Computed example of a mutant assay.
Amino acid sequence: MELVLGFDFGIKRIGIAMGNTLTGQAQPLAVVKAIDNAARFKQIGELIAAWSPARLVVGEPRHPDGTEHEMTLRCRRFANQLHGRFNLPVTLVDERYSSAVIHAKRGQIVDDQAASIILQQYFDDHANNN
Results as ranks from 00 to 15, higher is better:
residue 120 Q to N: 08
residue 118 I to H: 08
residue 7 F to L: 05
residue 119 L to G: 01
residue 79 A to Y: 06
residue 48 I to V: 08
residue 13 R to G: 01
residue 74 R to N: 04
residue 19 G to F: 08
residue 23 T to A: 12
residue 88 L to D: 07
residue 23 T to I: 11
residue 8 D to F: 01
residue 30 A to Q: 02
residue 89 P to G: 00
residue 40 R to L: 04
residue 78 F to V: 03
residue 80 N to K: 12
residue 95 E to D: 11
residue 3 L to S: 09
residue 14 I to H: 00
residue 72 T to F: 01
residue 30 A to T: 00
residue 27 Q to G: 09
residue 28 P to G: 04
residue 96 R to E: 11
residue 2 E to P: 04
residue 114 A to V: 10
residue 106 R to H: 13
residue 105 K to N: 14
residue 85 R to H: 14
residue 24 G to W: 07
residue 35 I to E: 14
residue 3 L to A: 06
residue 68 E to W: 06
residue 103 H to E: 11
residue 6 G to T: 07
residue 104 A to F: 10
residue 54 A to C: 12
residue 98 S to E: 01
residue 42 K to G: 07
residue 115 A to K: 00
residue 31 V to Q: 02
residue 73 L to D: 00
residue 26 A to F: 04
residue 40 R to C: 13
residue 44 I to V: 14
residue 119 L to P: 09
residue 4 V to W: 06
residue 30 A to L: 02
residue 17 A to G: 07
residue 83 H to F: 12
residue 124 D to M: 06
residue 59 G to I: 04
residue 20 N to Y: 08
residue 65 D to N: 15
residue 66 G to Q: 11
residue 126 H to P: 05
residue 59 G to L: 00
residue 74 R to K: 15
residue 30 A to K: 01
residue 70 E to A: 09
residue 19 G to H: 03
residue 109 I to V: 14
residue 115 A to Q: 05
residue 89 P to K: 00
residue 11 I to D: 06
residue 52 S to N: 13
residue 123 F to R: 00
residue 9 F to T: 01
residue 12 K to W: 08
residue 99 S to L: 12
residue 66 G to S: 11
residue 5 L to C: 07
residue 29 L to V: 07
residue 105 K to Q: 14
residue 55 R to S: 09
residue 51 W to P: 03
residue 3 L to N: 01
residue 104 A to Q: 12
residue 66 G to V: 13
residue 70 E to L: 09
residue 85 R to A: 13
residue 127 A to L: 11
residue 83 H to I: 00
residue 129 N to A: 15
residue 32 V to Y: 01
residue 25 Q to F: 14
residue 108 Q to K: 15
residue 103 H to F: 13
residue 4 V to G: 00
residue 106 R to Y: 10
residue 91 T to Q: 11
residue 114 A to K: 06
residue 122 Y to N: 03
residue 89 P to R: 00
residue 117 I to M: 13
residue 113 Q to K: 09
residue 118 I to F: 14
residue 90 V to M: 02
residue 83 H to T: 14
residue 53 P to I: 08
residue 94 D to P: 14
residue 81 Q to A: 12
residue 63 H to S: 13
